[in-house]
Design a protein around this nucleic acid. Structure first.
Length: 724
DNA sequence: TATTGTGTTATTTTT
DNA sequence: TAACACAATA
């Protein structure tokens, strides 16, 4: 165990001050790259060195990734594993508390945590039962409204009469109320409920609040600028006994307002927690002066901020490059060229390069460009492992084994694989189950004996409930993997995928196999199900060297040597819809997003915009983003592409940069036509991970011109395809 | 009930 | 463009 002195010595003055701050509320305003996590983890270690028991500490983060990293770093700092510390996401900690006292709010302690998919399904049923036209009032919107209320800590009873009009001409409150009832009868809670029920518990059972608020002697919160009202109230309650709450955050990096985060919380911290101190971390250890000052000037256009000025002892570096292009294709090609240069001439790893876009659809242009050129890349974000259809299906089977009342899980897999049970039958079973308060097995059993199930559905459901009962008895005797294997065999789920035999079904089978192998990490079904509902991110640890493509949101907290920020155009970034919805407030959030983007770069930032962009099948013409003008001249270099009318960007992209790219692989087509490459010939059928199956039309060195069956004609590098 | 065709509509995303 | 939901059809 390190001494306090050893913990403090590697820190700068402000960091050390924050780490050793004694008692009372503390806000650490930590700018980008100022050692936020280091400070927070050091403080945890410091408190432990001051004889605070780990079990008296509550450390809250937003993501599992952050919680994991924190745990890891504290353990490394103390040189011993930390047991007993409550460290986790808001949701996982709230779930832990709620499981202990579930019966106080009408749930059993084995309640299911449902995701947004199930939530939507439930709301659709509700709307149908109320004869509300889903076209005029989509379930998605209702989900948004209800989640919004929950984020604000509002139960149906707390709503104002006018709130009802937030959905379907005044039906909002009633629907919210019934949705909550249905969740209770399903013994389920959605993500918002986890926090909301905690608030209810603390309010209605003061003894519980007393216990928890005295148990935790220190509360530490990461990314405080992202807290929504419910989380904020939760923190205030838990901190009410000792006021030892240390929040770390950066108002300039608040980018989740659209999902309930309130920058206001960090702005009024001093009013909320009397006697609070604020410590600013302004020394940046990441970026060069040019990058820092460019970002700083940009963000200074925001009015709603506490204000801080980042500085660095690093050198000037090179100015932020601002590149103008004719269209999106030219932009992508120029970035690809630039990456070649960065990688080959300046020896920067691909993994140290990122392309950050405003919206995920923008990644496509880059993917296509990089595939054609054979540049290795990965798209961060996108759909996660547990969100895949086949994985959710397998999990639904497990859920129903675990909880035979789980109608949502039943709805999901009643006809997967197809067994002749159509939507009408499913709805009837669900309605009966709800009306009679019977579990799935009993419901189907009853309906079968009444002869109210017809056609193909009758025998398949008979088999289904038999199987379900077998699985239930198996679940207590065999391992999770064996149970899963058995379910797949009995239902023929994998068999059905095998019959489809296309690239998609192939990868689905792979995914299921991957799930199988991860099952062994879990002791019981219950532990596994809790894991999948709360720990959604399965970061595949990929140690291959690849360019990172992701949204600006996904980039928060990361850093790269070189960062490309394409699509800085009015309407795209700042995003038009955001502006329409929330005006000036949204513009400030978009600006913070721009700030986050620039400050990800250590040495090199390249902003770009194009005058023409292909969007949704047609061309859109955009003006440069207003943020471009807000960048200070002395820290940027503007590179205007030579005026041209051709779309053949490759002809003149060199003009933009004033150098050529001989070192990189030539993109000029060489006309020495080949007829084979390795084992591949013109006319061969091949398989590509992304594009599926196709036929080779032309071979040119290692570049193959392929007509894909699904994705059309594309040029790809030979090493990316296999003979089919 | 399963398949095919048509129409609509396009942020950001963690838990 | 492309994905997805829903209606019309086999």
């Amino acid at each position: 165990m390190l001494s306090a002195q050893e913990i403090l010595s590697p820190l700068n003055d402000s960091q050390a001050k924050a780490v050793s701050y004694k008692e009372g509320p503390l806000l650490v305003l930590a700018g980008a790259g100022t050692g936020k996590t280091k400070t927070l983890t050091s403080r945890v270690a410091y408190l432990i060195s001051q004889n605070i028991y780990p079990s008296q500490l509550l450390v809250v983060t937003f993501t599992n990734k952050a919680a994991g990293e924190m745990k890891h770093r504290v353990a490394a700092l103390l040189n011993q594993p930390v047991d007993g510390m409550w460290i986790g996401t808001f949701h996982s900690i709230a779930a832990r508390i709620l499981r202990k006292h579930a019966t106080n709010v009408g749930l059993r302690n084995d309640f299911t945590i449902i995701d947004s998919d199930d939530q939507l399904r439930l709301l659709k049923q509700l709307l149908k039962d109320h004869n509300i036209d889903e076209k005029r009032h989509p379930a998605k919107q209702l989900a948004y409204v209800i989640n919004g209320w929950k984020d604000k800590g509002l139960t149906p009873a707390m709503l104002q009469p006018s709130d009802a009009y937030d959905f379907a001409d005044g039906h909002g409150t009633q629907l919210y109320h019934e949705y909550q009832q249905r969740l209770l009868s399903l013994n389920a809670a959605d993500f918002g409920d986890l926090l909301l029920y905690n608030l209810i518990l603390f309010k209605e059972y003061p003894a519980l609040l007393h216990d928890y608020s005295h148990k935790f002697r220190h509360i530490l919160v990461d990314e405080y600028q992202d807290t929504n009202v419910a989380q904020y109230l939760w923190l205030r309650l838990l901190a009410s006994a000792h006021h030892n709450i240390c929040c770390v955050g950066d108002d300039d990096q608040s980018i989740y307002g659209w999902r309930g985060a309130e920058v206001g919380h960090i702005l009024k911290f001093e009013q909320d927690f009397t006697g609070a101190s604020i410590i600013r971390l302004e020394r940046n250890y990441r970026s060069t002066t040019h990058i820092l000052n460019a970002a700083g000037a940009l963000i200074s256009h925001n009015k709603n901020r506490l204000g801080k000025t980042l500085w660095t002892e690093d050198n000037q570096g090179s100015p932020v490059q601002v590149n103008a292009f004719f269209d999106d294709i030219e932009e992508a090609n120029a970035i690809a060229d630039n990456i070649d240069k960065t990688h080959f001439s300046h020896s920067i790893d691909y993994s140290n390069i990122a392309i950050l876009v405003r919206a995920s659809y923008q990644t496509r242009t880059f993917e296509e460009c990089f595939i054609a050129r054979g540049l290795p890349y990965k798209v961060i974000g996108g759909l996660r492992f547990y969100e895949r259809k086949e994985i959710k299906d397998v999990i639904a089977f497990l859920r129903i084994v675990h909880q035979p009342y789980d109608l949502l899980a039943f709805e999901r897999i009643a006809n997967a694989p197809k067994r002749g049970v159509g939507p009408t039958t499913i709805q009837r079973i669900i309605h009966t189950s709800r009306a009679e308060n019977l579990n799935i097995i009993d419901t189907i059993h009853t309906m079968l004996s009444q002869g109210s199930l017809k056609g193909k559905a009758q025998p398949s459901l008979q088999t289904f409930i038999q199987q379900l009962q077998e699985w239930q008895s198996l679940s207590s005797t065999v391992t999770l993997e064996e149970l899963c294997q058995r379910i797949m065999d009995d239902t023929g789920y994998i068999q059905a995928l095998k019959i489809q035999n296309n690239a998609e079904s192939q990868s689905r089978i792979e995914n299921i196999k991957e799930l199988f192998s991860s099952l062994n990490d879990f002791e019981t079904l219950e532990v596994f199900l809790d894991h999948v509902s709360l720990v959604m991110d399965t970061q595949q640890s990929d140690n291959t060297d690849m360019i990172n493509i992701m949204t600006l949101h996904a980039a928060k907290g990361l850093e790269f040597d070189t960062v490309f920020l394409p699509g800085w155009e009015q309407g795209i970034f700042p995003n038009q819809r955001a502006l329409d919805d929330a005006g000036e407030k949204a513009l400030e959030e978009e600006r913070r997003l721009a700030y986050v983007g620039i400050t990800r770069a250590k040495r090199h930032a390249e902003i770009s915009f194009a005058s023409r962009r292909r969007m949704f099948g047609s061309y859109q013409y955009n003006l440069p983003s207003c943020f471009v003008e807000e960048l200070p001249e002395e820290h940027i270099a503007i590179n205007q592409a030579s005026p041209t009318n051709t779309t053949h960007a490759t002809k003149h992209y060199n003009d933009n940069h004033g150098h050529s790219f001989d070192q990189g692989p030539s993109i000029e087509a060489d006309f020495n036509q080949d007829h084979h490459y390795g084992g591949l010939n013109v006319g061969s059928r091949v398989f590509h991970l992304k594009f599926g199956y196709g036929k080779i039309l032309r071979i040119d060195g290692d570049k193959l011109d392929i007509a894909f069956e699904k994705s059309g004609r594309k040029t790809v590098i030979a090493s990316y395809v296999d003979a089919a």
